[in-house]
């Protein structure tokens, strides 16, 4: 039982780390630019597709990784300059609509370019194995551990960036009070572009890291986008710390809910009923969690905004 719990905790953390990569970028975009970007999931999808394409061309996932992340980052910058920049002064509704249009476009454009079937991305050879712990009681795929490692490294980098650098100081200030930063003479347009590019790169990285374990296909970004929103709402908009805590929380709750809830239910009610309501409740669990958090703390666990 303990081994099972440890393995499931690892699964939950791995999902959480992937969500963190998505949420970190988006929470900054929301917090600093005050822009709702539904197309964040599309950037994740594009990152995965580029990883597939570049792995096929170069023959190496490790080479493809930086190329795909960079390309997604550039795409993010292009999107920001071409469309979103004009919307900063408009209300959220316009941003929702515009980025909704972008989702439709991207979901279709990948199908036109890469065809309607899912693409294949191999796990890098060195990581294509299972690792055993505790005398083989716990077996875990090496690649999933690599995802956790990359995610934690990115988290560390972001904490350093935010806490120790000038850019980070501006980001923090921007998240707390955007108008104040602008009033102080900071080039807020450049800061916005930078933050959006960073967010796009992180979404791309999440997509690239997910590509070897998930089907690379049209619409793959839609589901994770909604989970990312839940993470951000729980963590508090604009807070990297909140994003990390909430991402891991959601990852673990979702995983544990899926694996343990049916087991627990089976003890309480009869098997037929348990198998009927178990998955339903498990898939609603994180939304219930979100509702509870928001009822207690409407600004999330770690609100960044002061004004």
């Amino acid at each position: 039982m303990l081994e099972l719990l440890v393995s499931q905790a690892l699964n939950g953390i791995q999902l959480g780390v992937l969500l963190f990569l998505m949420a970190a970028g988006l929470t900054l975009v929301l917090g600093i630019m005050n822009v709702v970007n539904l197309a964040h999931g599309s950037l994740y999808m594009v990152g995965a597709y580029l990883a597939a394409q570049m792995t096929a061309v170069t023959g190496s996932f490790l080479l493809a990784l930086p190329m795909a992340v960079l390309a997604t980052l550039v795409l993010g910058l292009v999107l920001e300059v071409a469309t979103l920049r004009t919307l900063y002064q408009r209300d959220h509704l316009d941003q929702v609509l515009l980025t909704f249009g972008l989702i439709l476009f991207f979901n279709e454009v990948v199908r036109v370019i890469w065809g309607p079937t899912a693409l294949f991305v191999p796990v890098p050879e060195a990581l294509d194995q299972e690792l055993e712990f505790l005398d083989g009681e716990i077996i875990y795929p090496a690649y999933r551990l690599a995802i956790i490692a990359v995610g934690l490294a990115v988290a560390a980098f972001l904490f350093w960036l935010i806490a120790r650098t000038r850019v980070g100081m501006l980001i923090r200030a921007g998240a707390a009070n955007r108008d104040m930063v602008a009033a102080l003479g900071v080039d807020i347009v450049r800061l916005n572009t930078l933050v959006f590019g960073l967010g796009a790169g992180l979404a791309g990285l999440a997509g690239v890291m997910a590509a070897p374990i998930l089907a690379v296909e049209s619409g793959m970004g839609d589901g994770i986008l909604i989970l990312t929103f839940v993470v951000i709402v729980i963590g508090g908009i604009g807070s990297i710390r909140g994003a990390l805590v909430a991402a891991v929380l959601i990852g673990v709750v979702d995983t544990m809910g899926r694996s343990l809830l049916p087991m627990i239910l089976r003890e309480l009610v009869d098997r037929q009923l348990a198998s009927a309501i178990g998955p339903a409740v498990a898939s609603m669990l994180i939304y219930i969690l979100m509702a509870v958090v928001l009822t207690l703390r409407p600004q999330g666990l770690f609100p960044a905004r002061t004004g």
């Binding site: 929301l30 005050n34 709702v36 959220h92 929702v96 909604i226 929103f229 839940v230 951000i232 709402v233 908009i237 009927a276 998955p279 339903a280 898939s283 609603m284 939304y287 219930i288 979100m290 509702a291 928001l294 009822t295 409407p298 600004q299 999330g300």
Partner: peptide, 25 residues
């Protein structure tokens, strides 16, 4: 109780919750 971006995302999440409920009924 929320507003702005929070409102958008939470309405989305609640609708998703209902969607999953009916998918599993």
């Amino acid at each position: 109780r929320t507003s702005g971006i929070y409102f958008i995302m939470i309405t989305l999440a609640f609708a998703q919750m209902l969607y999953f409920l009916f998918v599993s009924l």
